[in-house]
């Protein structure tokens, strides 16, 4: 088992280096650079100012040297400073992590809580009206653009509160950590968690349904049925447990993909999280920050995938570590 994990971690090294090279090249292919962005927003770009800025940020050094710095820095856990704000990348990311993480976890909870029961019910009553409705709702969740859902959900809250209490209400727009003021904090994160969670639950529910359907046709379930075991028992004891394998995989993988959902949702709800920071870093052409964020996402992706595989194997004794 340890050898397997070690092996997988070793395989992750080329992935990380590849991602590093990709982000490094991609960012430098974007015309202009952070100096042009910084000086350009005020409309006073002159060649001397740009050169000065390049020198200050070390952008006048050779590309090879810059790449070397980046990789060595990453390997030694030093991400450097953000070219935009001049603050350390670690600080920039650390201030944004809590809100994003909170929403990601809440969204996962929402998704799992909705998806697994509904997916199971849907599978047990395949092609009934109930199944059709559940599937329709699920697919609608996948089909609706998430920013649209976000904008609409705030509007609905505003309109409903206006109608009910005579004054429009919406969640606060200044973030406070959960430990400082739980209620304030939850009222901020609940809507974004629901909008992300809806899409997430839709994906998970479909997976639960098809995994359940597959398992229900397995021989051992038929045998159990033939033995006259209670349907309830069959579902809980045998089917659900085995159907959970692909679902767990999906939840894990989707969790790693959440960052993509956060990019748009954090904009809609004006949350100062990782997703928004990511868009800003790309738009400001802040190489160091973008590079660090990409490496972070890729690392999370690799670790989650590994965790899912280990969990998978642990849940299913048929799978051996090879």
């Amino acid at each position: 088992m340890y050898r397997y994990i070690l092996n997988r971690l070793l395989l992750a090294v080329p992935t990380l280096i590849g991602a590093a090279a990709l982000v490094f090249i991609l960012m430098r292919l974007i015309p202009g650079d952070i100096c042009v962005v910084r000086l350009g927003t005020g409309g006073s770009i002159n060649a001397a100012a740009v050169a000065n800025c390049h020198a200050q940020l070390g952008l006048d050094r050779s590309l090879l040297l810059q790449f070397f710095d980046f990789v060595v820095g990453f390997a030694s856990g030093n991400f450097g400073t953000s070219m935009w704000s001049g603050k350390s990348v670690a600080h920039e990311i650390a201030t944004r992590i809590p809100v994003s993480l909170e929403i990601a976890i809440l969204a996962t909870v929402v998704a799992v809580a909705i998806a697994i029961p509904l997916g199971t019910i849907s599978a047990l009553h395949q092609n009934s009206w109930l199944d059709h409705i559940v599937r329709t709702v699920a697919i609608a969740g996948i089909a609706t653009p998430s920013f649209w859902l976000g904008i609409m959900s705030i509007l609905i809250v505003l309109d409903v509160s206006h109608a009910l209490f005579g004054a429009p209400w919406m969640p606060p727009i200044d973030y406070v950590s959960f430990w400082d003021d739980p209620l304030h904090n939850l009222s901020i994160v609940i809507l974004p968690a629901l909008t992300i969670g809806y899409r997430y639950s839709a994906v998970t529910m479909r997976m639960t349904r098809s995994a359940m359907l597959e398992v229900l046709r397995e021989d051992y379930i038929r045998t159990a049925r033939a033995k006259g075991l209670l349907e309830q028992l069959i579902v809980n004891r045998h089917a659900l447990k085995n159907a959970m394998l692909p679902v767990v995989t999906l939840i894990g993988i989707e969790f790693a993909f959440l960052i993509g959902g956060l990019v748009v949702t954090e904009q809609v709800f004006n949350l100062n999280g990782i997703g928004r920071l990511f868009v800003l870093a790309v738009q400001n052409q802040d190489y160091t920050l973008t590079q660090a964020l990409v490496m972070l996402t890729v690392a999370i992706f690799v670790v989650t995938n590994l965790a899912v595989d280990v969990l998978y194997a642990w849940l299913d004794p048929r799978i051996r570590f090879g």
């Binding site: 904008i151 705030i154 509007l155 505003l158 004054a167 429009p168 727009i173 200044d174 709800f269 004006n270």
Partner: peptide
């Protein structure tokens, strides 16, 4: 005073409407 960065317009209009700003 408190000044909050809010880049997206829909958020700003909503916030004024709900007197968050």
């Amino acid at each position: 005073f408190t000044a909050i960065f809010a880049a997206k317009q829909s958020v700003r209009v909503d916030a004024i409407r709900a007197d968050r700003a």
